[in-house]
């Protein structure tokens, strides 16, 4: 039986193995994903982003508990950075989620970025698909949360939650640089700290001034204390409100069009590049171009046009 068939039957080891094959870039994984694709699309995908230490993993843990109470099966993808120096990584988000480890209705997978920028790994979308196909009704993605360009998550998640902590101060700049645009829901966690109310107000004011990402939806700012399970019910209702909004307004169609286009184009780009690069690597052309450029006899623009013309009959003009 193929891994995909075993995944569809809910087999945990098969799902875990397929995720590994996807992450490691095995060709066989693509064939399995083809089989799974028709069985995906029913999970509600939530993205959780925000700076390290804001309490994302703790929130994921509490959200998971809340969804489990509703009887929903939950998949979690938690992404942490790969060290650029050693290629290794410490994936530590599970620390906050251990109580769900032996619950059959929860599947947690930690992923390393492996050099991919944008807050998630290259494999994240496909891993979400595996969780979706194996019947997880809610899938929560926790991003790395370091930079400001965590935009990948917006394409992948139906609802994106931006988690902040009280005392924004200097972070105001960071907020301007794109965080406001990506959130459907904003959470000020660590509400036990002073200044929480002020941060909520500041954020709300900034959101007022910000042109909406989606005209029909006004993001709210909520307060939580994840470590003591406070404010979680309100957060779950707000997520549900956004999910319902997507469907009732038809915004879901726009979301899916963009998601599908970027997914398709990413695969196209990757495959085209691999195809051409593999070819010129094997036939020695790559080396020849490199040598030509060294002495300025070949320019890279012409070289690319010629290679495309040879390979596909395109490129000039």
């Amino acid at each position: 039986m193929s891994l995909a068939e075993r995944v569809l039957q809910g087999e945990v080891r098969a799902a875990a193995r397929l995720m590994r094959d996807i992450d490691d870039g095995l060709r066989s994984a693509v064939d399995e994903l083809k089989l799974l694709y028709p069985h995906t699309g029913s999970a509600y995908v939530i993205g959780i982003t925000g700076p390290p230490g804001a309490g994302k993993s703790t929130l994921v843990d509490q959200l998971t508990a809340a969804y489990r109470k509703q009887g929903k099966r939950v998949g979690i993808v938690a992404v942490d950075p790969t060290s650029p120096f050693t290629g290794g990584a410490i994936l530590g988000d599970r620390i906050r989620m251990n109580r769900h480890a032996d619950d059959d209705g929860v599947f947690i997978r930690s992923l390393a970025t492996r050099g991919h920028l944008g807050g998630i790994s290259r494999s994240t979308g496909d891993v979400v698909n595996v969780l979706d196909a194996m019947g997880m009704e809610v899938v929560i993605i926790e991003t790395v949360g370091v930079g400001q360009d965590e935009i990948d998550i917006v394409r992948m998640a139906h609802t994106t939650v931006v988690v902040m902590v009280p005392g924004l101060g200097d972070d105001i700049q960071a907020i301007k640089a794109g965080i406001l645009e990506i959130g459907d829901v904003f959470v000020v966690n660590k509400a036990d700290r002073d200044e929480a109310d002020r941060t909520v107000r500041d954020l709300a004011v900034m959101l007022e001034m910000n042109p909406d990402k989606d005209r029909g939806w006004r993001p709210k700012v909520l307060k939580t204390e994840a470590s003591r399970n406070r404010g979680i019910e309100e957060l779950v209702s707000e997520l549900e409100a956004h999910r319902q909004y997507l469907h009732s307004s038809g915004a879901i169609n726009h979301f899916l069009e963009e998601k599908n286009a970027s997914l398709f184009l990413d695969i196209l780009k990757e495959r085209l590049f691999a195809e051409v690069y593999g070819h010129i690597h094997v036939n020695g052309r790559f080396r020849a171009v490199m040598e030509g450029m060294m002495t300025r006899r070949t320019d890279p623009y012409t070289a690319v046009e010629e290679i495309l013309a040879e390979r596909f009959g395109i490129g000039k003009g």
């Binding site: 945990v12 290794g88 990584a89 994936l91 620390i95 251990n98 480890a101 032996d102 947690i108 930690s110």
Partner: peptide, 25 residues
């Protein structure tokens, strides 16, 4: 050393450890 380390912290039961190891492959 270049490994991916799934760090689960303190106080887990053997059941939690084994189940995490399987999910994380």
């Amino acid at each position: 050393a270049g490994f991916e380390v799934i760090y689960t912290g303190l106080h887990q039961t053997p059941e939690q450890i084994v189940s995490a190891a399987i999910q994380e492959d």
